[in-house]
Design a protein around this nucleic acid. Structure first.
Length: 496
RNA sequence: GGGCCGUUAGCUCAGGGGUAGAGCACCUGACUUUUAAUCAGGGUGUCGAAGGUUCGAAUCCUUCACGGCCUACCA
């Protein structure tokens, strides 16, 4: 006995053969449509308002999303990239031969139809087809029309089915595109130029993370996929591009969760002669401008809460914020071991081998981050966890760095960039010591090539990193990063 | 990595020791303005996989695979 799947496919294959036998190419090379669905609707509504009867014959094309067969007439809904419209086939209009083709249509087939528009008795705008062409025969059944595709794994593995059957999913990715376009416009209007820097690097730096490793055969050399775009963009500031940005994919060889995908997209921007206060103003202005442009509002819903993105966002000292949350002043501890003991007392456990940079980070991620629903800037981080940022004038143990939080997520990270090449070398060396002594695989390495660039002189600079995927989550109300990445990373499955 | 939950027809889901079920989709027939079309008929399946318990396993047990959520690490 053939399986269920094979028998369906067999039925479709027989239909396919019948099409070919009757001289119809089921996969023609092109179809000249005159209008998209959206354009057709707009055209009809214009003529309707002008009190005229639409005369013009239109050619539309799309995938069959539903069909209602009435015997000697039938209705199908077709969908293209712009919308859905009903098509009406009549035996007496179409003729026996074309009508028999219409009767053979399956949900999922892609067709072209030519005819004119009218309104049915119930007022639905409909194209009465005088011609019908098969543009691509579908051999697989589509998910159910009413519930759509629900199976989460299938939605991610076969995203095209998700997009065909779930309008909400189409909407999220459409918005993602608009968000990134709005971001580019904003940066362009501010005088930033967009650049591209290498993904393949001899050493991965610019962030605390483990890289993916690969190998170049011709060079016979190991290369790393970038974990940040930071160090190359600063080289461009040194090169005299005063405002640069890159929107690009970066790769981190770490865990996967609702907030983490191994490859994700960041915006990094660098502005000469600016500090982190200037960058703060830019972030709050940019995010609210994007929301206004794409969503038409600066208020977004996220789970149970409504988030107001209009500037100004509150600025709070990281040190005071942590002290408010748990009574612990991280500056009161001179060495990592005593801070670690104090954290243990308030129930925050950290591994024995954790490097100093991990300690405060742990306090932030467990106590602060989940509680910051409204957009908030936290300012001035410990120097140990920010090897690329400049110290504050008022306390050498802190750097001019901020992170922006919203919806319980970190969405941006920025600092006044360290431009003293000798101090930068010392900071790298401190990181290198953690790597060798504490086994901190995420510590920065001494990057001689970057240090050489710094030695030529980098102007005072404000730098910024924004997690685009998380920003899209925030603006579309999605609770999982997989809902805003078209093809999220999943474990491979054995073939069917 | 740890914990909990899930995997049954193409899709959405019931069924929890005794012949494999429903709706949609699909197939056959009727119907020339339907729209979750309607009406009559048809079940198309490796119950995620492999072992085990049992007279008998979709159901109970073990292991494994994949996924979801929480947790740990990171952004």
């Amino acid at each position: 006995m053939p399986s269920r799947l094979e028998s369906i496919t067999q039925q479709r294959l027989e239909k396919l053969q019948r099409l070919r036998d009757s001289g119809i190419d089921p996969y023609p090379h092109r179809y000249r449509r005159t209008h998209t669905v959206q354009q057709a609707v707009a055209l009809f509504e214009r003529t309707e308002r002008a009190g005229r009867l639409p005369q013009r014959r239109l050619a539309l094309a799309g995938r069959i999303a539903a069909s209602r067969d009435m015997g000697k007439a039938c209705f199908v809904d077709i969908r293209d990239g712009t919308g859905k419209i009903q098509v009406y086939f009549r035996l007496d209009v179409l003729g026996a031969q074309s009508y028999s083709l219409a009767k053979e249509l399956d949900l999922g087939d892609i067709i072209g139809v030519k005819g004119h528009l009218f309104r049915t008795r119930s007022g639905e705008l409909t194209l009465e087809a005088q011609e019908l062409h098969m543009l691509a025969k579908s051999l697989q059944p589509l998910p159910e029309k009413w519930h759509g595709l629900v199976d989460v794994e299938k939605r991610y593995r076969q995203r095209y089915l998700d997009l065909i059957s779930n309008p909400q999913s189409r909407e999220v990715f459409h918005k993602r595109s608009q968000i990134i376009a709005a971001m580019r416009r904003f940066l362009h209007d501010q005088g930033f130029i967009e650049v591209e820097t290498p993904v393949l690097q001899p050493a991965a730096g610019g962030a605390a993370a483990q890289p993916f490793i690969t190998h170049h055969h011709a060079l016979d050399q190991d290369l790393y996929l970038r974990i940040a775009t930071e160090l190359h963009l600063k080289r461009l500031i040194i090169g005299g591009f005063d405002k640069v940005y890159e929107i690009g994919r970066i790769f981190r060889n770490e865990g996967i969760s609702t907030k983490h995908n191994p490859e994700f997209t960041t915006l990094e921007s660098y502005q000469a002669y600016a500090d982190y206060h200037d960058v703060m103003r830019m972030v709050e202005t940019m995010v609210s401008a994007i929301a206004q442009e794409v969503l038409g509002t600066t208020q977004v819903s996220f789970g149970e809460v409504t988030i107001e993105l209009a500037p100004p966002w509150p600025r709070k000292s990281l040190r005071e914020e942590i002290e408010e949350r748990c009574g612990l002043d991280f500056l009161a501890y001179e060495d990592p071991a005593s801070l670690r003991r104090a954290m243990l007392e308030i129930g925050v456990e950290v591994e024995e081998t954790a490097s100093p940079s991990h300690l405060v980070d742990k306090l932030i991620s467990s106590l602060v981050e989940p509680n910051l629903m409204q957009p908030t800037f936290l300012l001035d981080y410990p120097v140990e966890m920010s090897p690329l940022a400049k110290r504050t004038p008022y306390n050498p143990r802190l750097v001019e760095r901020f992170e922006a939080f919203a919806a319980g997520m970190e969405i941006a990270n920025a600092f006044t960039e360290l431009n003293d090449p000798l101090e930068q070398r010392e900071r790298f060396q401190m990181q290198e010591r953690w790597r060798t002594q504490l086994g901190d695989q995420e510590a920065e390495r001494v990057d001689e090539d970057f240090l050489l660039a710094l030695e030529y002189g980098m102007p005072p600079t404000g730098g910024l990193g924004v997690g685009i995927d998380r920003l899209v989550m925030l603006l579309t109300g999605q609770q999982s990063i997989r809902e805003v990445i078209l093809f999220p990373q999943l474990k491979s499955k054995p073939p069917f």
